[in-house]
Structures are given as structure tokens and as C-alpha cells.
Design a protein around this nucleic acid. Structure first.
Lengths: 141, 141
DNA sequence: AATGCTAATTAGAAACTTTCGCATCTGTAA
DNA sequence: TTACAGATGCGAAAGTTTCTAATTAGCATT
């Protein structure tokens, strides 16, 4: 049994073709890469998999609920998804070109835990997004 | 001349009825309150101001551009707005009792701007939420 | 292998937020 | 007061996400 199948079963999801294909796409993308539902839909079309857009959304939501992927919301009212990763990281989003970039800054993370501790909290989850304009590239479509 | 009018003029915007009304709503809300465009539209209806939803969006975008308000991107693909506050703050949320607490930590904020700068970004907006369990109170419903 | 039950998928339409186009109206400066 | 740039309102359009109803596929059991 393939790795994807194990992951899906472990998450309590039946192993179906759309789920496997979508999981593979996310997997191949690797860490730091983010896809919108539309991106994934187009990729599926390209490889000849006839999966509906609604299914892509549903499967991604199921993956999110199961903790397999993380959903990120940003400008323009659409979301991007990435395979849940073990390493804590944060995101910086270019509001012009839409690119999402990950970064890890231990000092920043440590400080957050320290603040929470000082306020009498135990952190279970964090969300940090920086929105801005990236200087290079960003051919402002 | 009223305070709102001065603010609008200072921002280079004509003083029109919709703009004044929308500004007043945001002002009355105070800090920490967040309104969606739809919320504001409904409030305008309630007080009998016949302002179109499109205008609400346009005005909010202008206010944002002028630096009068801050836009936050929330779940479900919609945005909320709050009057730009002089002080940047972040939020810590108790996942048990739902309490939201604001905090300000300059070191944390500075570090974020530094990271963005290092990555070639100019920050226009930030969102930091810490989720956790608060030790005291927290009458875990 | 075939069956039946359950759950998942599909396509299209609906829902929802946000933006656009254009005729009309308003605020502002002369 | 007048003229004009710019703002507004309305409806339609655009774009993302969700819903519905009918169909199909997965899977445990024969």
C-alpha cells in the first residue's frame, strides 16, 4: 500500500481516486509551495483526471479537518493550501502578485511563547501573517 | 468643522455624506471592534442612510489607501475593517472560554518588520493570533 | 467474482463577497 | 451661483466557495 493511502486511512478517510490525486499533487509540491483550489483543479485537468472543482474544495476541506493540510486565507477572497508540516513556520504574503512565502524565525516564535506564558496562556496554535508588497519580481498583474 | 471632516480632508478625500457616515460608524465602534462591509451597510440602512453597498466597499478601500482604516482578511473570504489605531496590537485567544485579549509587544512587532525587510517586503498589514488556554478563570463552558 | 449498502463524486446552479460600468448627482472652488 | 471633477447608486459581472440531486464508486459480505 502506498504512502498516500496510509495517510488517508490514518486520517479516517476512504481512499478514493480524487483524494489520492490531490494528495499527490500537494505532496509533490513540497513544503513552502501553496496551491489554490483552482490551481489544483487545473493540474488535475492537465494530467487527465476528471475531478470537479467542487470535489477539490470538498476534499481540501476534509483534508483540513483531518489535519492533513493547512488552509491559508488571503487577498481576493480565495484560499491556498499546503501539506501540514511538522516545523513551525509563518507566512508572508505579497498582496500584489499573491505569492505566499514561508519563513522560520526562532527568535520570533520564542518571543510569542514567552508572551503567552507571561499572560498565563499555554499556546496550542498560532497564526502569523505578514501582508505586503515584495520588491522584486512581482510583475504586478 | 467636525473632526471627521478634518480627517477626511487631511486624507485628500472630498467630504461626502457616505464617507462621513461610514467614518462615524467606525469611530463609534471604538478599538477592537471589527466590521465587515456588509455590517456597515446594514448599520447605514438602520439609520436611514441610503448608501449603496458598492459605495461602502469603495469608501473603505479609499480609507484603507489613505491609511484611515486597517483591513483584516478573515475566514470565509471576506474582510473586516477597523479604524487605524495609533498603536499596533495583537490578539491572544482562549480556545476554552473564548476570551480575546489584546497585547502589545514592541520587540515582537519590530522583529516582524525586520524579517519582512530582510525578505524584501514592505508590510502593509499584519495578523498575529495566539490560541491557547488561559490558566485562571476560564469557566470552560 | 457478484451483490448491496453506504458514502463519495459530478455538474451545474446557487450563494456570497467584492468589483465594475455608466448615467446621475454632489461637493468644491472660482 | 455655476461649472466641473469626482463621487454615488444601481444593476450586472466577476470570482470564490458551497449546495443539491442524481449518479457512481468503494468496500464488506456473500
Amino acid at each position: 500500500m502506498s504512502l498516500e493511502n496510509q495517510e488517508l486511512r490514518k486520517a479516517g478517510l476512504k481512499v478514493t481516486l480524487p483524494r489520492v490525486k490531490i494528495y499527490q499533487i500537494l505532496e509533490k509540491a513540497g513544503e513552502g509551495d501553496h496551491f489554490s483550489a483552482e490551481d489544483i483543479y487545473k493540474l488535475l485537468m492537465e494530467i487527465g483526471e476528471d475531478v470537479g472543482l467542487a470535489t477539490v474544495y470538498r476534499v481540501l476541506t476534509q483534508f483540513e479537518t483531518a489535519g492533513l493540510v493547512t488552509r491559508h486565507h488571503f487577498e481576493g477572497g480565495h484560499s491556498v493550501f499546503e501539506l501540514a508540516s511538522a516545523e513551525e513556520h509563518d507566512h508572508i504574503v505579497c498582496i500584489k502578485c499573491g505569492r505566499v512565502r514561508e519563513f522560520v524565525d526562532q527568535q520570533l516564535i520564542d518571543r510569542q511563547y514567552q508572551i503567552a506564558k507571561d499572560l498565563g496562556f499555554t499556546i496550542t496554535d498560532r497564526t502569523l501573517y505578514l501582508y505586503g508588497v515584495c520588491s522584486e519580481g512581482c510583475s504586478a498583474k
